[in-house]
């Protein structure tokens, strides 16, 4: 079973995303900011990360840069999932190593389509 780390400071969003991903047969874990997510990746590198951008303590983009600099940190597929719905942010995320980008609000079909595009489904 593939693993996915859901990183978002909103418990509601984590719950919704987790439900969608579990329906897609992912084994999910959660983190409420980038720093906790980095620690989780150090302990066990997931196959995928669904990542919010705007979070306290450490943002999604800083987490992504930190992840890609870690040993083995190039492996997980990272999908940004954010309200930063503009071209400038999308380009910045791709430049930092994101594989896909979901603009909130999202639903099951969008998550499924995005994960399929990067070979996770």
């Amino acid at each position: 079973m593939k693993t996915c780390l859901v990183v978002d400071d909103s418990g509601v969003i984590r719950k919704v995303a987790r439900r969608i991903l579990e329906q897609m047969s992912f084994d999910c874990s959660e983190a409420e900011n980038g720093l906790i997510a980095l620690d989780a990746c150090k302990a066990r590198m997931p196959d995928a990360v669904l990542l919010d951008w705007n979070m306290p303590v450490m943002s999604g983009i800083d987490f992504l840069k930190g992840l890609r600099a870690m040993p083995g940190g190039d492996k997980p597929k990272v999908v940004l999932c954010t309200t930063n719905n503009d071209m400038k942010h999308i380009v910045e995320a791709l430049g930092a190593g994101a594989d896909e980008y979901i603009m909130k609000p999202f639903d099951h079909d969008i998550v499924q389509a995005k994960f399929a595009q990067i070979g996770l489904v």
């Binding site: 071209m87 791709l94 980008y101 079909d109 969008i110 389509a113």
Partner: peptide, 14 residues
């Protein structure tokens, strides 16, 4: 936004 997220890779959107 909904339509461009169904099937379109983000690199092609950009």
């Amino acid at each position: 936004q909904f339509e461009v997220q169904r099937g379109l890779p983000i690199t092609l959107l950009v």
